[in-house]
């Protein structure tokens, strides 16, 4: 089956036609460079996205704190990750880069804070 995919490898946005072949191979046409072929293959077989979100904290002073995945996560896992994030509460203080979730579902993807939030008064 053919899938039309817009390449995001560069701002050109080539329209790729990707066809999966038996044995896991993918035929890509419409690309103007090799990166396009790679992009099409991955987007067809295992599309991934970086997820950014906010997590509830235990402090009314900074009630929500922003987080991101350290690497793109497989698309089908994103709803699960979001549900986990909405259930969770982050304990402050937290520093930018601190890990909040480690190795989510054994994907090797972590969730880290993208900002620093302390409990102290501003000085």
């Amino acid at each position: 089956m053919e899938h039309e995919i817009i390449c995001l490898g560069c701002p050109n946005g080539c329209h790729l036609l990707c066809t999966s072949k038996p044995g896991g191979a993918v035929d890509v046409t419409g690309n103007t460079c090799d990166r396009g072929a790679d992009y099409g293959r991955e987007e067809l077989l295992e599309p991934k996205r970086t997820v950014t979100a906010v997590v509830r904290t235990d402090s009314p002073r900074v009630p929500w704190i922003s987080v991101k995945t350290t690497r793109p996560l497989a698309k089908p896992l994103i709803p699960e990750l979001l549900e986990e994030l909405y259930r969770a509460t982050a304990a402050l203080p937290a520093r930018r880069g601190d890990r909040f979730i480690e190795n989510f579902r054994n994907t090797g993807v972590d969730v880290v804070f993208t900002r620093t939030a302390s409990l102290e008064e501003a000085t």
Binding site: P60, R61, V62, P63, R115, T116, S118, E121, A122, T123
Partner: peptide
Amino acid sequence: VEAFVGNVPENAGFGAPPGGTN
């Protein structure tokens, strides 16, 4: 220099609880 991004009390300004840092 008072508050930097990071240790900013988001709620310390508008809408903070009465008697708080407001």
